[in-house]
Design a protein around this nucleic acid. Structure first.
Lengths: 147, 147
DNA sequence: TAAATTCCTATCGATAAAGTATGAATTCGT
DNA sequence: ACGAATTCATACTTTATCGATAGGAATTTA
């Protein structure tokens, strides 16, 4: 029951792109160095994010990736769903038909509750929010909350 | 980010023992049939639950397993922690020293929030509660009498 | 044309998950 | 005392997944 490395790398990558939204394409080599993730691995991770329409790419020299929509319109749940294929803790939450006992299954109900509690968090946090938090941590208070 | 088969089997086993708390030892063969889990696999799963003091065993003929304490004093989180070794979504939530960036890590904070939301559910539900829910479900539409 | 970069496909190795096998130790009933 | 039932211990196998790497094709800039 762990968040995979893939998801964590994906989230950090999107966060990086989000914090530089509007600055044009950013190449993976740069993110690779900054986040200390192998370039080749990053290339793998970002493919599904592009396919799903979270990021867009520009090929060739001076190319790179940028968010396909504003950070406020991307939430962590998007990344989780795309890179994990699901956001459910167990198989039969997606397809209740799979298990005949589902309607009578008490444990299933509870895994479902836990899944939903988790997803609620994932859905509630946009990358805009994460960028703000990041700036706060870095000591650069975001304008809106400046004291 | 899936709940392992081991945890699911463990939870169903404890639920079964809980629903028959006070009736003396129940042998794994019976649970194995009822829950459709291989006996050998069940034997593996129950060992850590015994070691951790959730269940107690009686060896030999007419032996079996029973809960070591009332269902009201066992929660799902116990099973998760014992069979998964943790209840955290990522490594660095247990040992913050592991990653130097932890204090500045925005994504870490969020995985932590999600972990806590999930754990809150796991901790809030005792096996007494689960037995009650199970009885309710069976009362509404008892599977045993259906064709 | 050369360099930079995304894109595509394949592969590898390590690890863990899931399940099986064998048999010893223990206890009960007869 | 014996045999059946059951837990307990250990080891093994198989399968799947994860994380990572490799090589090179396609595309774009300058």
């Amino acid at each position: 029951m762990r968040i995979s490395t893939k998801i964590r790398c994906g989230a950090r990558t999107i966060l990086e792109l989000a914090s530089r939204y509007g600055e044009g394409p950013i190449d993976l080599k740069e993110i690779s160095k900054k986040e200390n993730i192998s370039l080749k691995y990053l290339e793998q991770v970002i493919i599904p994010l592009r396919t799903a329409g979270l990021v867009k790419s520009i090929r060739g020299s001076k190319g790179g990736y940028s968010l396909a929509k504003p950070p406020s319109e991307i939430c962590l749940n998007d990344v989780v769903e795309i890179l994990d294929g699901t956001n459910q803790l167990i198989e039969c939450l997606q397809d209740p038909k799979g298990c005949k006992k589902a309607p009578f299954c008490v444990t299933r109900d509870i895994w479902k509750e836990a899944s939903e509690a988790m997803n609620k968090i994932f859905r509630s946090i946009t990358f805009e929010e994460m960028v703000n938090r990041k700036k706060e941590k870095e000591g650069q208070s975001p304008p809106m909350y400046q004291i």
